[in-house]
């Protein structure tokens, strides 16, 4: 599958602060890829670099083969990508109808049917001025403008933040629907449950570095929470095996997350004379907490 987004050793420093520290990302065409990380992990900086809004300190990347750090190519990127920013900034003096009309004129592949459908579904009043919209309405409008662009790639920075559950479900449904029609979606989110629902790939960053790059399938099939009760005390080093993440030992009980090799890990643990071994599925949320805590 062709990569739509690719970065190589992408770095961004703000003064002494290293916001993004050598990211190697790859997002395949047709994928719904979630981009997770704590606040300040480097998500927004990465997205801004992808769109040419800020310049990388070093390293680089491409979208649809256009280099992100070349001004002229960056312009081509912005024509092909629909981006909905975290702050959902819009022209306050325009009405809902005016900004739709205005935005539409820039995009020859504008999806009129989707525009009509979303105006109705989001209950957006065309006559109302943007400055009079609530935060939720504003977000819905920004999403409408992004979704209807008819672009092959959608980049959404926390698309559902500040929306009520009904609107969130609407947004996720549109994401799913566009993905089914071949649109690639790259979105950052703090809502891990919604990620598990609609994404097929997960990228997780922490302190500017990639800590997880896996398909949802791998996450669900290969990651396991393992807890073993031993007859004799064990040490952390007894459990250093490929696929074993951070080990926590409390007396005779060892618990850890396995990212692969579950069968051989269980076999090894059994040989260490574990009395009882529990192997449980693990949610993306727990993996997230594990990855983030392991580093802090």
């Amino acid at each position: 599958m062709a990569a739509v987004i690719e970065t190589i050793e992408l770095k961004k420093n703000y003064g002494n602060h290293e916001a993004v520290r050598g990211l190697n990302l790859s997002v395949n065409a047709g994928s719904v890829c979630a981009f997770l990380g704590q606040n300040g992990a480097g998500k927004s900086s990465t997205i801004k670099m992808l769109l040419g809004m800020i310049h990388p300190t070093s390293g680089g990347g491409s979208i649809f083969g256009h280099r992100i750090d070349e001004e002229r190519e960056s312009l081509l990127i912005r024509q092909k990508v629909a981006f909905v920013a975290e702050d959902k900034r819009l022209y306050d003096y325009m009405s809902v109808g005016q900004i739709i009309h205005f935005t539409r004129s820039f995009f020859p592949k504008w999806n009129h049917a989707l525009e009509t459908q979303l105006l109705e579904r989001f209950e957006l009043p065309p006559e109302r001025k943007i400055r009079q919209l609530s935060k939720g309405m504003r977000t819905k409008l920004a999403l409408l403008l992004g979704f209807a662009r008819g672009c092959e790639l959608l980049i959404l920075d926390e698309p559902t933040e500040g929306l009520d559950p009904v609107a969130i479900e609407d947004v996720l449904q549109i994401v799913v629907s566009l993905a089914a029609q071949g649109t690639t979606v790259f979105f950052s989110s703090h809502q891990i449950a919604e990620v598990e629902q609609v994404a097929d790939h997960v990228l997780m960053i922490d302190h500017g570095q990639l800590v997880l790059n896996a398909s949802m399938y791998e996450v669900q099939e290969e990651y396991r929470q393992i807890q073993a009760v031993f007859t004799d005390p064990v040490e952390e080093r007894d459990l250093r095996l490929p696929g074993v993440e951070r080990v926590k030992i409390e007396g005779h009980i060892a618990s850890f997350v396995a990212s692969r090799n579950v069968d051989s890990i269980v076999e090894h643990v059994r040989m260490l004379r574990a009395g009882n071994i529990d192997v449980l599925p693990i949610s993306l949320k727990e993996i997230f907490l594990e990855k983030v805590r392991a580093r802090s």
Partner: peptide, 8 residues
């Protein structure tokens, strides 16, 4: 996928 709101 749309009805269940899950990835296609």
């Amino acid at each position: 996928a749309e009805t269940l709101v899950i990835n296609p």
